[in-house]
Design a protein around this nucleic acid. Structure first.
Lengths: 241, 241
DNA sequence: GCTAACACGTGAACC
DNA sequence: TGGTTCACGTGTTAG
């Protein structure tokens, strides 16, 4: 604010006063003002260039002025500083956009931002992700992989939803890798998952999966799912059927 | 891309070749190069100004070059165009930031972004958010508010989950404001919501709410919930119990 | 006086 | 052949 006064001369006093002479008076200013030409021949074609150059400078200054307008927190009115501040501002916006888009990505992917997830909150997986997560699948089949975290299944219900769907609801105690293993189980089962949701609340993990199933297939699926989940409690037992 | 070639002369051929003479050679270039001074007295103090001016121009061009670097999709290499593109880009980023922040606001408030909601996507409400959304509540009680969109409830199941929880699963056809009305219903019911989730898949809307309920309270809640949801189908019927 | 920042006119280079 | 853009040197003004 204070340096507004010390620099306004350039762009508001000097600039506007000096440019007042030509910015608007460009039309009637066109011809004369030869002003001691270099080689004697005064202003046959040279003054055409002069006015063009004036216009160019004027345009450039207007642009710079406009640039200054869209950038907040301008410290110096310096031409160079204006551009520098604009660069910094753009980079700042780009970083912020990057961050926000990453957050949105995580949110859309169903993974909550880690700071919240580590605290006490919800998580979510869409079926697409369940299928695309092929990396740790072998790890699940390997008993050594399952041995790392003993999963405590508190509750398991597999109920019908309408004619073509099963709702699988699991309640576990939230521990490390519990979520991963649960996802791996459902990946292993190769279900036709319509939608899936995991919610972590107060130390408990609630997973709800809606599975497509028709007619008698539902009963088979129910058994398979229950068996697989039950097998999670005891990792050493073979996961069959 | 094509005009990169027609303008690179300014900034890469001519500019760099010409500035090569002074940008790095500024130190040893300091004193001489009188170059025919105006009034005979050659370079006592005038050439000091020259080198300063050169440095200033160099810095300005470097800044402009850097500005061009951070702005994508530069069409013209024009000095003025560079600044103009930068301005447009900044405004674009600002608008986008504004939009995204508005979306985040809506998302945190529990309202889904409209562009996504009208298409086909998911939404999610945390219990905190459900409780904080007090604005449209009266609108729901008002029959005029409910009359706008006839909700088609395809499926409704209220089942137990463990000893203390009920799982409410609703399947609707996805229409405008379906989600909002569903949320309002659950707000109206004043349940102890542990977690809630809405998923929209292939034109259908699936809402799963896990509600805290103990003992016989569960039966009452089940009836109340089913009644409220059923009332949604016919907005004119009073929502009681 | 000295530095920094500016606008100006000018010649050159390009299309 | 104009039209445009540029870098340069210069004079000037404010701090």
């Amino acid at each position: 604010m204070e340096n507004c006064d010390e620099y306004k001369n350039y762009w508001e006093t000097k600039y506007f006063l000096e440019n007042e002479e030509y910015s608007w008076a460009m039309d009637e200013f066109s011809g004369y003002y030869d002003s001691s030409s270099p080689e004697g021949a005064a202003s046959p074609a040279a003054s055409k260039n002069i006015v063009s150059e004036r216009n160019r400078r004027r345009k450039l200054n207007e642009r710079l002025f406009a640039l200054r307008a869209v950038v907040p927190n301008i410290s110096k009115m310096d031409k160079a500083s204006i551009i520098k501040d604009a660069i910094d501002y753009i980079q700042e916006l780009q970083e912020q956009e990057k961050r926000v888009q990453a957050d949105i990505m995580e949110l859309e992917t169903g993974k909550l931002m880690k700071n919240l997830a580590n605290y006490d909150n919800f998580d979510q997986d869409l079926p697409v992700l369940l299928r695309s997560k092929k990396t740790k699948f072998d790890n699940f089949c390997d008993p050594a992989g399952s041995r790392t975290a003993p999963i405590e299944v508190l509750e398991l219900t597999v109920s019908q939803m309408g004619e073509k769907a099963l709702v699988v609801s699991i309640t576990c105690s939230k521990r490390t890798d519990t979520m991963v293993k649960l996802c791996e189980v459902f990946e292993y089962l190769k279900l036709k998952i319509i939608t899936a949701n995991i919610t972590v609340v107060s130390g408990k993990l609630l997973k709800t999966v809606i599975v497509e199933a028709e007619g008698k297939e539902k009963d088979d699926l129910k058994i398979r799912i229950e068996a697989a989940i039950t097998a999670l409690k005891d990792p050493l037992s073979p996961i069959s059927i």
